[in-house]
Amino acid sequence: MSSGSQPTAEGLSGPRVTQFSIFLSNRVGALLDVVKVLNERNIHVLAISVQDSADTAIVRIVVSDPESVQQIFLEHAIPFSICDLVVVELKEGATELGRLLAALLAAECNIFGSYALITRPRGRPALALHVEDNECAVSVLRSQQFTILSQSDISR
């Protein structure tokens, strides 16, 4: 192997944070059942978004240990999908939202979904973004002095 190291997955497309989209029946307690299964394994939900309909709900979560969650969901027959998010620290809080959105608009980077983290990494608010092009979003936001957080930044 050459003296240069291989690029990591994080180096190729920027910091990654995994989002799980869980498909649940729309019944009382369904979400609690999932959270209990995770908490029993000392895994915490760090961010959550719920979209429900008459029969089903799609719950999008970011967790403290995504590597373990996939296997847990398979063991418990919980249907899910995975995608990568861009998580942005808002050093000045909510007042930076307009600047963040303007930067993504200028780069024509579409936002498919967004939600705040329950936790406050480094004591500051953070926003999870599901965007059309993660590399573009990371590059543009970094050029505007936003801090992009990785899974290790937000996990305990």
Rank of each mutant, 00 (worst) to 15 (best):
Q151E: 15
R120C: 03
H76K: 13
T56W: 05
D84N: 15
L105T: 01
A116R: 07
L101P: 03
I61H: 01
G29K: 04
A30E: 15
E96N: 08
S13Q: 07
S13L: 12
F112G: 12
L46R: 04
A103T: 01
R41F: 05
Q6R: 07
I148L: 11
F23Y: 13
F80G: 05
P121C: 05
V88E: 02
G98Y: 00
L90R: 06
Q71H: 13
S2V: 12
R99D: 13
E108K: 04
K91A: 15
E92Q: 13
V140D: 11
I154T: 02
P121K: 02
V45R: 08
Q70C: 11
E89P: 12
A128S: 06
T18W: 03
I61R: 00
S3A: 12
Q6E: 14
V62L: 15
I148Q: 00
C136M: 09
S53A: 15
L101V: 03
G29S: 04
G11I: 06
I78R: 09
E10N: 12
L104N: 04
G113I: 11
D65H: 08
I22T: 03
L74N: 09
V17G: 02
A47V: 08
I82R: 00
G29E: 08
L127G: 02
G93I: 10
F146S: 04
G98P: 01
A103H: 04
F112T: 07
F146Q: 05
V37H: 00
N42I: 04
I58H: 07
A137G: 06
I61A: 07
L101H: 07
F23Q: 02
Q19C: 15
V34M: 04
S155V: 05
G14H: 04
N110P: 07
N26L: 13
Q71V: 03
L100R: 06
A54M: 06
V86Y: 02
S143H: 08
I22Y: 01
D153A: 14
Q151Y: 10
L149R: 04
V62T: 01
S139L: 02
P79A: 11
R16Q: 14
R156D: 10
A30W: 12
L46W: 01
V59W: 09
A103Q: 08
V140K: 07
S155I: 06
K91Y: 00
I58W: 05
E10M: 12
E135I: 10
V45A: 02
V86N: 10
I82F: 01
F146W: 03
F23D: 06
S25A: 10
P125S: 04
V35M: 05
I82P: 00
S2F: 15
L105W: 09
N42P: 03
Q6G: 00
L105K: 12
T56E: 14
E67K: 13
S64M: 02
L105A: 11
L141C: 08
V131L: 09
E10L: 13
R41M: 07
V131S: 04
V59L: 12
